[in-house]
């Protein structure tokens, strides 16, 4: 694929901004790690060798205990299985992930529900929360959920915002007028109240939360896309395309949109940051994802309640949020700088 020389220039410029570039690499690294987190943080074994055959339980359907000669039909407890195999010494073995805890698992079954400090021997590297669950595991899976939410949020906000914005700018006139007035009214609907009302009626899932937040967030994007389209529409190449008989969608999406992409790209990291903040805030307030879904907001909320007796909860959650938001902001700043047209402007 041959890239537009201008784009190449922008990418080069982005790479030259070291802080943003390395932040992006780190974020990508974190995303990849979160995507395959089951291999590192999970209560399912990586490999079980039982009577000569190998099983890989990480992905796929659960394997009942009976398959490994245990007396129960629910999912195998692989940590116990490992100990049993060790004691039997019959050549069976189990390889567990580095952190052998799932994010929704009661790590101290039968013991009091109290937050416990980091314990390296039990592989609770960041301790446990007040429901006896591993904090590191919840952090990582919470990050994954937040990122899924953020990407989904970004996709739909941009899809709706860009489409409507471009159409408004391109058609103008009555259509523009009506949609703008609608947006003005719509953006005054108090988003938080709607979430509270919905959460009091149904338990929100990721999809419902995404739908509600997108429903109220797409309006901001339309303004930028509208102005951009207005500007581009007046250019000669648009007129040329019209004269050549190109269809309206073709002109908007193939000719005008690529020329406004700079705006979209510069906004992306900031949209992501605000999406992460939004889902965390909703979870913090108790209107977010259903329990026991791992989530940063829920952890932060626990942390503020147990600040005195279990400072490690709030520290972990807070640090994670701050680090991720800072990284994304660094990326965003670098992107903005790379796309800044002023670099090429000469004042006399």
């Amino acid at each position: 694929m041959r890239l537009n020389p201008l784009t190449v220039k922008k990418i080069q410029r982005f790479r030259s901004i070291k802080r943003g570039y390395y932040s992006l690499l780190l974020v990508i690294g974190l995303l990849v790690f979160a995507a395959i987190a089951e291999l590192f943080i999970n209560n399912r074994a990586l490999i079980v060798s039982y009577e000569g055959s190998w099983r890989f339980p990480t992905y796929g359907a659960m394997i009942p205990g009976t398959e490994f000669g245990l007396d129960y039909s629910h999912e195998t407890n692989y940590r116990e299985l490992r100990e049993i195999f060790r004691e039997e010494g019959a050549g069976n073995w189990v390889i567990m992930p580095i952190v052998p805890w799932s994010p929704v698992e009661n790590a101290f079954r039968g013991e009091s529900m109290i937050p416990r400090p980091p314990d390296f021997a039990r592989r609770h590297f960041l301790g446990t929360d007040r429901e006896n669950r591993d904090i590191l595991s919840r952090l990582v899976y919470g990050f994954r959920n937040a990122m899924i939410f953020a990407f989904g949020f970004m996709f739909f906000v941009y899809l709706i915002g860009t489409t409507l914005g471009c159409l408004m700018g391109y058609f103008g006139g009555t259509f523009d007028l009506i949609v703008q007035r609608f947006i003005e009214i719509w953006s005054n609907v108090p988003f938080l109240y709607v979430v509270i009302i919905v959460a009091s009626v149904v338990t929100p899932t990721l999809g419902i939360l995404l739908a509600i937040t997108v429903l109220f967030a797409w309006t901001g994007m339309t303004y930028y896309m509208r102005t951009n389209t207005l500007k581009e529409k007046a250019r000669d190449y648009t007129a040329a395309a019209q004269v050549l008989g190109a269809s309206t969608p073709r002109i908007i999406f193939l000719h005008i949109l690529p020329n406004t992409i700079a705006t979209l790209v510069t906004f992306m990291p900031f949209t992501m940051a605000s999406a992460i903040t939004a889902i965390t805030a909703l979870d913090f307030l108790g209107f977010g994802l259903p329990r026991p879904t791992p989530s940063w907001g829920e952890m932060l909320q626990q942390g503020t309640q147990t600040m005195v007796i279990a400072p490690w909860i709030v520290t972990s959650a807070f640090s994670a949020i701050v680090i991720v938001l800072i990284l994304i902001t660094f990326v965003g700043e670098a992107v903005r700088e790379a796309f800044d047209p002023k670099k090429f402007t000469v004042y006399e």
């Binding site: 999912e75 429901e131 338990t203 329990r291």
Partner: peptide, 19 residues
């Protein structure tokens, strides 16, 4: 949380709703 995790052993799923 405890009831949900334990009930899974009997193949029963609880969807937790805290209103």
């Amino acid at each position: 949380t405890i009831l949900r995790e334990e009930a899974r052993k009997a193949g029963l799923d609880f969807r937790i709703e805290i209103l």
